[in-house]
Design a binder for these strands. Sequence first.
DNA 1: GTGAAAGCGCTAACAT
DNA 2: ATGTTAGCGCTTTCAC
Lengths: 344, 344
Amino acid sequence: MPKPGPRLRLVDVAERAGVSLATASRALAGRDGVSEEVATRIREISRELGYVANPYARTLAGGASSTVGLVVHQVDDPYFSEIAGGVIQVADEQSLLVQICHSGRDPDHELRQIRHLIAQRVGIIIIAGSGYNDPRIEAEAKAELSAFQSLGGRVAVIGRHSLGVDAVLPDNEAGGQALGDHLVGLGHRHIAVAAGTPGLTTVADRLAGVAAGLRAHGLSLDDLPVVHTDFTRDGGRAAADQIMTNHPATTAIVALNDAMAMGVLSALRARRTPVPDRVSVVGFDDVSVAADLAPSLTTVRLPMTDMGRMALELALKPRSARPRRRATGHRLIVRDSTGPVPAV
Amino acid sequence: MPKPGPRLRLVDVAERAGVSLATASRALAGRDGVSEEVATRIREISRELGYVANPYARTLAGGASSTVGLVVHQVDDPYFSEIAGGVIQVADEQSLLVQICHSGRDPDHELRQIRHLIAQRVGIIIIAGSGYNDPRIEAEAKAELSAFQSLGGRVAVIGRHSLGVDAVLPDNEAGGQALGDHLVGLGHRHIAVAAGTPGLTTVADRLAGVAAGLRAHGLSLDDLPVVHTDFTRDGGRAAADQIMTNHPATTAIVALNDAMAMGVLSALRARRTPVPDRVSVVGFDDVSVAADLAPSLTTVRLPMTDMGRMALELALKPRSARPRRRATGHRLIVRDSTGPVPAV
DNA sequence: GTGAAAGCGCTAACAT
DNA sequence: ATGTTAGCGCTTTCAC
């Protein structure tokens, strides 16, 4: 397979400028120890020649790696593709490369991917996606990442709180609360939750938010159906079917992400249950199609693209003594999938 | 689960196996010149130790670069995120890394990204997304890529025919034809097209297909409104508004991709124009949400994930004398957004 | 401020 | 079949 060809090397630039390799290297890296005059000339020549450093040589020699490893559950899930979009934007601005890989929602696979990225010597690791309630997994990941950091790597995560690194934290609880509040405000009491797999912290957090929102109005989630299925469209379908079969009095379903909400809508459509006239439905995330569903989906908007941007920006700052946390904010977007409780 | 030490090197594996560096290298690379017995032992030890080769050293030393550069217009566009998903799947299977970057639908930017990937010494380049009708751009890209190939790089593209490299070619014409055929079959005569920017070859190809489909029934696209706007949801909105205002007799709108179709549906909804009772709408691609829109979208399915897979698989084969081409196939998916012509 | 030289970890000739 | 060794192109001490 591909072999490197005869390309422009740093020596060529150095020779052309009449300086040594070391000086040229210093000049291009913007390090000091070179007179401003010489440095400028070297940079000019390099630009003229169209020189681009060989990243393999650079990194091997101990320079900083300019590639960022991005771990997402699945790029073709809109939640993650929007986050990836944000990361790529910033990377582009900073001339960094983005290496993307899938965890496939499998904690062990994720761990393997993280190790792989570290072994590949990326300079920065961004992990997007829910954490796991399994302490073993989280501990192993944490250990791996902190070793990576102590070797000079930078890490930022999105939506995980227990990894001891800089984190962008979506407003999962507050958003869940807003949702619960909204439904109760519309008069709903028979509320059910289509929740994702219980192993995900995102599910737990959003659920806790919903519980809090209901509690404020004297309702308890303990008395209401909470169905745990996959955190996907299909999971949503299954959950909705289960809910409507076992709890026909339900007038509102909270799906803990938009993908599940889409499944819920689809299941209700199949059952010819009018939304929102008979059952209201809410989602979470506000992926871009949420507005185009029928009915358009009431949901909590999370700024996914910005979350991606923020994560890489965090990782690009010098490491701080203690992990930084950035909350994302959220906004309840009321659309057509929610309405008042049907008159009995 | 093997835990990689802070910095395991090939020497460590070699020492542990009691062989030389060269033998270890050969064994792990699967090259011959090592007895099967020894090779197996080395591989075992390497796995046990959790050894992962340093790709920088490996590539610098003249080995194959194991990274794939993927250029997409935008990852957060479902069409591209599904393709990216396919590429990542295969890469994962082959232990390759995927570096992803955006062209942003800007031909000059795309060219810059390609040059950057080449300068970064990726081993394989995959370019997804429509080509451009601008011959200058295509010629420059072609030159760049062929230089890259002659240096041993591998290239495959998706949906571009004029680059002189291996290509996965979506059934744009045949799909367009199927769409035209479908609408005429339902009795539609007043058909309009919401087309993307005319500079994109994908737009031209799909349009040609639609024209052919109509022509077969004695209709000519020359007599029908074809509105060129952005190849996006917003473009679809604008096109639909323009079409319905200027050609109120229109009973069917062909959008040249699903994103535009979503815009069309949204514009029609805003105008309270019933779909499909008053106007039928078709899209192209069958992105995963197409089935969840209201009404669900009649469209041409392209196997995006497979297209990503095929592209990388093509690129992984040894280069052939002449560029290979793989057609993707397509399937007309009839859903609820199309129906018979309304009775007058 | 600048240059010379020693690696970084690996592959690939060249030996044996 | 296996070992020895010379680089790959760069950064980084360490001299000057």
